[in-house]
Structures are given as structure tokens and as C-alpha cells.
Design a protein around this nucleic acid. Structure first.
Lengths: 215, 215
DNA sequence: TCTGAACTTGACCATACGGTCAGGATGATC
DNA sequence: GATCATCCTGACCGTATGGTCAAGTTCAGA
């Protein structure tokens, strides 16, 4: 219901509402942080991308770090939400397949978020360590229980659920985080619709057969 | 033959040889760049880690960017070299298995390098774009040819070689790049020898079965 | 012992950065 | 149209950064 409009943020009208301004800044910040990293990003550049004076950013977000924290939190929540498909499935091929589709769609539509997350974790998660230890751990444990149930029911081979999850994350996020490398190897062209489809099918096929899924 | 010594770089003796000093600086730089990213790293911190005055770094490496470039180049060459195991194999299970072992060993022993590479690519490869377009492309094309031969010989299913390679890179490098997240989910403990072994076995098993390898 | 090239370094500089602030603009409410 | 909380912003500040430099130090070879 409170969905923000998708129109280009070109509005020159003064007096934005708080929610609107924060969304605009967060969007610009996500792009800049993903392109330059936390250390390489500057408040001035984020302001330029958002089309606002730098001082205005500090009105909504007191510090660079607080802005960054909110960017990462937003990404994490979107990412967790999209993972629910895992549960509404009967067996591993269906559940994991749907999860791969969902995560590949995120990699395609929101690669910036994936890159910011990767950068944050690679640098030791200084800002979202607590999320890793609480929310992510709980989510992971829940999914591990589902996979163990599938194994117990003979619906797939006895694969270590942890390493399977890491493989799913790694493979799907790779298409966002290393999208530039993939595009370069693709003749310096972004993947087409068909190539994204191929990628998804390949991943689903290899993993589904690899774990001996038999829903 | 011209292998540098493995002794701790604590030497206080003056007048290092050029090779020795450069190796010391490159090692410190790799660590700092991997922890902070290019933008977040400072020459002062690299100097502190190397145990040298900052001005000395600029004697060997004129600019921060030139130092960074050499760090990335060194990583890339090590990484390519370790990939030769791919060719000296009879079939996919053996070749890909050996490649997974080699890359996992790199992820375990030199996670810093993997992180620097990931960071560079994620930010659009501003420094090593030419490597992607030439050396990496050639290496990739060579490996694709090998995989296509295996497929033609009926030694594995008809999987798109590109996406298979991306999956191998993604999965193995994930253990370096996201090592902090993995350790956190592992009860805030680094993976043990046995857990690394499990990880390798899981990956090899899933992919080997997933592509229908029959050496 | 002398020479000179290679190396080392403390002090310094210009710039760019994150962040502050005072004062102005806006618009909903009465 | 007066009030006032919210929002906006140009100008400014202290600091930290990448990089420079000139004055040293070291040591192999003559």
C-alpha cells in the first residue's frame, strides 16, 4: 500500500515528504556504495546522484555510517523476504528451484544491493555483525531443518545442508557481484533474457541432480 | 628458484634488497586492501603493517593506484597458474574435482587475494579491465573447449560450459570472500580441517553428479 | 678511503573529506 | 495572515589523506 512511485526521481519541487526524501537518498546511496565501496563513496557524490545538496543528506542521516547502515539493513530485509519461497514447497527440487529463481531475479534486478552486502561481509561485517549472529543465523537454522526433513523423508541425498545453502548463495549472488566479469566474458555485453534463463536452468539442473532431488 | 623466504618479515636490518622490500609492501598492501577496500585503505596503514615509513612506500610504488595494480596483478597470475590442473585430467570428474580442490585451497590459504579480486571486479574492474578482456578471456575460452570436448565424448551431460565455470568460481571463492559470514554461522569459529574437507567433498559431489560426469 | 648510486625518512603541502551551523524558505493549521 | 515546526542549503571548519622533497644513511666497488 505505501508503495513509492516508480517515476524517475527528477522532481525539482521543494518540500519533499520525509519518506520520499529518505527513499531517494537511500537509492542513490545504494548505487554509490555499490560502485565505490564504503570507503570510496563520498557524501558529495551521493548527494549529486540524488540531486540534493550535501547538507540535506545530513539532515536525514546524521552520519555517513548511519546512512550506510540503513542501506545494508534494507537490502538484508528484502533479501530475507524473498527467501520465503523456500518453505512453501513440497520437495527439494521445487523449493530449491523456486529459491534459485527468486535469488537470480534479485541478482538481475538489484545487483547494487548484492554488491553492498558482499562488500560489507568481505570487510568483516563491521556494521551488520549482529544481524549475522541473530536474524541470519535463525533463518539459516530454519532452512537447515527443512533440508534435513527432506533428507530424512528420502526426497534427496544426504548432503550437508550448510554447504548446500552456501552453494546456493554463492552461485546466485555471483551473477550480481561478478556481473561485470560475466558481461566482459560475454563480449562486453550484458546477459540477454535468454542467457539469464539459461543460467537459471543450468544452476537448477546441476544442483537438483547433484543432490539427487526426487520430489 | 627465486623463491622468497617464508621467514616472518620482522627484519630491522637496513638496506633491504629491492625484491624483498617490494614483496613485504605487496603483502601488507594485500592485507589492508582486502580488509578496507581500495578507497578505505590508506598508505599510512599499509606502511604501519609493513613496518616502514610511509615515504618509503612511495619510493617503491609511486602512487597508491600503482601499488594496488601490482597487488591485483599478482593475485591474478597466482590464480591463473593454479588453474592448470584443469588440463592434465582425463575426464570431467577428475579435472573439475582437481580444480575445485585447488581453488578451495587458495580460498583457504589466501583469502585476502580473493577478496581484493572480488572487490576490484565488483567495482567495475577499473584497474584490470584489460586482463579480463585478454588473459582471462583466453583462459576461459580454452577451458570451454575442454569441457565441450568432454561433452562431445559423452563424458558428461550437455551443460553450458560458461555457466559451469561461473558456478565453480562462485562456489569456491565464496569460502574466501564470505568466510566471515560462514564463520559466524559456524558459531563464530573458523572452519576446521574436517569442515573444509566436508565442504570440498560436498561441492565436488554435487557438481560431479549434477553434470552427469562419467570419466 | 673515497665515490656515488641506491635507499631511507621526517617534515611538509595542497586537497578533499565528513560534518556543522545559522539563517532562510515552505506550508499546514488556526 | 500570523504562527511554528519542518525542511533546505551555502558557507564554513578541522582533520586526514596521497603525495613530495631535501637532507640524510648505507655499502659495494674502485
Amino acid at each position: 500500500m505505501p508503495e513509492s512511485s516508480n517515476s524517475p526521481p527528477k522532481s525539482n519541487s521543494k518540500k519533499m515528504r520525509r519518506q520520499e526524501a529518505e527513499a531517494l537518498i537511500l537509492s542513490a546511496a545504494e548505487k554509490v556504495f555499490s560502485e565505490a565501496g564504503f570507503g570510496g563513496a563520498t557524501m558529495q557524490l551521493i548527494a549529486d546522484v540524488a540531486g540534493l545538496p550535501k547538507a540535506n543528506l545530513h539532515y536525514y542521516f546524521p552520519t555517513k555510517e548511519s546512512l550506510y547502515r540503513q542501506v545494508v539493513q534494507k537490502i538484508f530485509l528484502d533479501w530475507l523476504k524473498a527467501a520465503d519461497v523456500f518453505d512453501h514447497a513440497d520437495g527439494p527440487a521445487e523449493g530449491i528451484g523456486a529459491y534459485i529463481d527468486a535469488k537470480m531475479e534479485i541478482s538481475r534486478r538489484h545487483p547494487e544491493g548484492s554488491k553492498v552486502w558482499a562488500s560489507e561481509v568481505m570487510h568483516g561485517a563491521p556494521v551488520i555483525q549482529d544481524y549475522l549472529e541473530t536474524t541470519l543465523k535463525e533463518w539459516t537454522d530454519g532452512r537447515i531443518a527443512v533440508i534435513e526433513r527432506w533428507i530424512a523423508e528420502g526426497r534427496m541425498d544426504a548432503i550437508d545442508p550448510r554447504h548446500l545453502l552456501y552453494m546456493l548463495w554463492a552461485t546466485t549472488q555471483h551473477y550480481a557481484d561478478f556481473g561485470h566479469q560475466i558481461a566482459t566474458l560475454n563480449g562486453s555485453t550484458e546477459l540477454t533474457d535468454a542467457q539469464w534463463q539459461e543460467a537459471k536452468e543450468n544452476i537448477k539442473r546441476i544442483i537438483s541432480r547433484g543432490i539427487g532431488a526426487r520430489d
